[in-house]
Design a protein around this nucleic acid. Structure first.
Length: 679
RNA sequence: GCUGAAGUAGCUCAGUCGGUUAGAGCAGGCGUUUCAUACGCGCCGGGUCGGGAGUUCAAAUCUCUCCUUCAGCACCA
């Protein structure tokens, strides 16, 4: 086999949030592939970095009263600790806020300029005069220009679903300072990405660069019409690199982030006396990017365009994966399924998750589901009961004698396993780990059948010691074969398994030659079962608090003050003003979902006696109707009825939280009864 | 609405350049062994392959149509 040179990346995690089990789908998918290639003897390098620039980091640093560089240094350390905890091994882990990255950004930029691909255009945006920064849509709130609902974000209204520009909002307020934003115009630089369209149409459709469904998506969604210019600069203040030929303007974070792949490689090259061009300007090198489907656009359109413009090697493959759901639903803080990597590691073995994800992953961009019951069952049944147990049930028989000196007749099992190894390798190569795992477990089944049929414990009783030893030698060799095939997925288990037989796993082809005559170490447990109690402990720990959202604008469930900062206290009002609002305790008599509505639940609220109100509440994303029925809530009882798409809403249910799954309906303490006024 | 994808046993999936009685694992039922982390092994039940129509000697697999689900988009890229 000729040795391939392969460069692999995962998307750069953003320095504004912690690693969670959703992120891990990607890093584990990548790590498994890299480990497989290394085991096959290829020169494979895995590069990643923290993505550090942008407004979100800048705002976070301001709120915490420290330098951006402090924030990102701390987060980088945390990220790398989490990755290491899951046995994810990078050849180099850098940062987009590095000299190397600045150099490479400058290089790409120069190429774009030289080819006249950059144009200038004015962009009108809201500006926060107190903070002195331009405001992205999510940092502006005001009254919907369409239906007059107050307190709506700058891009769309949650009530009437209208979309608009933040400059259309009535009474806009900055969510950062509460100041009234000004409309300002600033110069932005754009890359005329349209000039790459014919190249992209060709590239995305050929040579397996993308899964066909992804290529179809791009073709249908973007490449059929003119590509809009890409807004690639942000005016000061901005945390990032200042554009050399445009003082006061910075590269947009999405420009310098992927270039971080090259910069990370460059730093590694410097340390290992390698030439960067051998990795990024060579048709001898394969480049594989692993990404989530949310950033397909950037990696399959913008990124190849940048690479082409600057004369770098184009990706061999952009591998797109889906999102993670837990128990069939989006990860949710209120359900405790928004699980941080570090929280998981406090209670559970990383090997479990590596195995489970591998068993689920295919080359397609389907979402994968972490059903926690299935997780425990699958790991216990397949990995512990079948694979590990094979060693456990046979090792003791040969603890004194070691393996047979010649490999015994085994009905062709080992040979079959060696041959199957090629199919397993094909599956790994194609990123079809689901298939690889199925093949491996199939081999484990055959090994267990053989062991049962031969019944070495029986042979031992009958005094046929040599025969018993032979059977166990076969079993342990088959076990070893399995652990070699599983090594990319569960490296720690494989390493410890090899130690049992006094060897190391060096290459994939070790699975082709049986061990003979070697000693066997005393067996000790290689892996314990998943205990649902520990799984529950993870859920509990994730439900409590301590979880932190990715966005700076979103509130956290701690007392940091972020929530207050995200939405400052409103203007003062008088007691009379307050008394105009009639808040009442109400019981949820009925809660119905409206299938066509994305955000609304239809609630029938009882105010005592026969008095009821129909209220449409935008809490579908956070509550199951059944969980609401019967409970007491607080409602605005004298709000003017509003005609909505699905009927007339006769009030409002009081709730806190930034939205989405983070919505918390308020309840009175025990003793309150429907109809009582809240003073 | 537009675009992309998907609908195969209770669950997770395999199988599709058309071709023997549609497969696996898990879950369920029955039996069995005792070497092993009460694990393993054997057997059984269970699917009109989303519905309908068409092409064909033959369709889960090709064509059309309808239904359902998911995701993306509707000026953030």
């Amino acid at each position: 086999m000729t040795q391939r040179r392969i460069l692999v990346t995962s998307a750069l995690p953003y320095a504004n949030g912690h690693i969670h089990i959703g992120h891990l789908v990607e890093y584990l998918q990548t790590d498994i592939w890299v480990r497989f290639q290394k085991l096959r003897g290829h020169e494979c390098r895995y590069f990643c970095a923290d993505d550090t620039h942008g407004t979100a980091i800048m705002i976070r640093a301001r709120q915490e009263g420290r330098a951006e560089t402090d924030v990102i240094a701390e987060m980088s350390e945390s990220h790398q600790r989490d990755f290491a905890g899951f046995h994810i091994e990078f050849d180099h882990y850098g940062s987009t806020n590095s000299e190397a990255n600045k150099e490479r950004c400058t290089e790409v930029w120069k190429a774009l300029r030289d080819q006249n691909l950059v144009i200038e255009r004015d962009v009108t945006q809201l500006f926060d005069p107190k903070e002195g920064i331009f405001l992205a849509d999510r940092f502006v709130k005001g009254t919907c220009p369409n239906c007059a609902t107050p307190d709506q974000y700058g891009d769309s209204c949650e009530k009437c679903l209208a979309t608009y520009s933040p400059t259309d909002l009535k009474d806009p307020k900055s969510t950062l300072s509460g100041a009234t934003p000004e409309v300002r115009t600033a110069k932005h630089l754009f890359v005329t990405i349209e000039s790459f369209r014919s190249f992209l149409s060709e590239w995305t459709g050929q040579d397996d660069h993308l899964e066909s469904s992804v290529a179809n998506y791009l073709k249908g969604q973007f490449l059929g019409k003119e590509l809009r210019d890409w807004d690639i600069s942000r005016p000061a203040p901005y945390f990032g690199f200042e554009i050399p030929d445009a003082p006061g303007h910075y590269w947009y974070v999405w420009f310098d982030a992927p270039i971080g792949y090259i910069a990370s490689t460059q730093e590694w090259c410097a340390k290992h006396n390698q030439n960067l061009d051998d990795w990024w300007r060579s048709d001898q090198t394969e480049i594989h990017h692993f990404i989530g489907k949310d950033i397909t656009y950037f990696h399959a359109l913008f990124w190849p365009s940048m690479l082409k413009a600057a004369g770098f090697t184009l990706p061999t493959r952009v591998q797109v994966h889906g999102f993670l759901t837990v128990n069939g639903e989006k990860m949710s803080k209120s359900k405790g399924t928004f699980i941080r990597a570090s929280t998981y590691l406090e209670h559970l073995n990383p090997t479990y998750l590596r195995y489970f994800y591998a068993s689920k992953l295919t080359p397609r961009e389907d979402d994968i589901d972490l059903n926690l019951e299935e997780f425990a069952q699958k790991v216990n049944s397949e990995l512990v009961n079948k694979v590990v147990n094979l060693a456990s049930r046979s090792a003791r028989f040969v603890a004194d004698t070691g393996l047979s000196d010649a490999y015994p007749d085994d009905d062709g099992l080992f040979e079959n396993g060696a041959a199957t190894g090629e199919f397993i390798a094909e599956a790994y190569e194609a990123k079809d780990y689901n298939k690889a795992v199925r093949l491996i477990v199939g081999l484990a089944d055959r090994a267990n059948e053989y062991f049962d049929k031969m019944a070495p414990w029986q042979l031992k009783k009958e005094g046929k010691l040599d025969e018993a030893r032979n059977v166990c030698s076969v079993a342990l060799n088959l076990f070893r074969q399995l652990t070699i095939y599983l090594a990319p997925v569960v490296p720690q288990l494989s390493t410890e398994s090899a130690r049992l037989l006094g060897t190391e796993i060096k290459t994939w082809d070790d699975a082709k030659t049986p061990l003979v005559g070697t000693g066997v170490q005393p067996f000790k447990h290689l892996l314990t079962r998943v205990d649902m109690k520990d799984v529950q402990a993870v859920i509990d720990a994730s439900t409590d608090a301590s979880t932190e959202t990715a966005g700076a604008s979103a509130a956290t469930s701690d007392d940091s003050g972020d929530a207050l900062a995200a939405e400052p206290i409103a203007d003062e009002c008088t007691f009379e003003d307050f008394m105009k609002v009639d808040l009442r305790v109400a019981r949820v008599l009925k809660a119905e979902t409206i299938p066509e509505a994305r955000k609304l639940l239809k609630l029938t609220l009882g105010l005592g006696g026969d008095e009821t109100r129909t209220v449409f509440a935008g809490i579908k994303s956070a509550y199951e109707p059944s969980a609401l029925e019967g409970r007491l809530v607080v409602m605005v009882a004298n709000l003017a009825p509003r005609k909505m798409k699905f009927g007339v809403s006769e009030g409002m249910v009081i709730a806190a939280g930034p939205g989405k799954e983070d919505i918390y309906v308020l309840s009175p303490d025990d003793g309150a009864v429907p109809g009582q006024r809240v003073h």
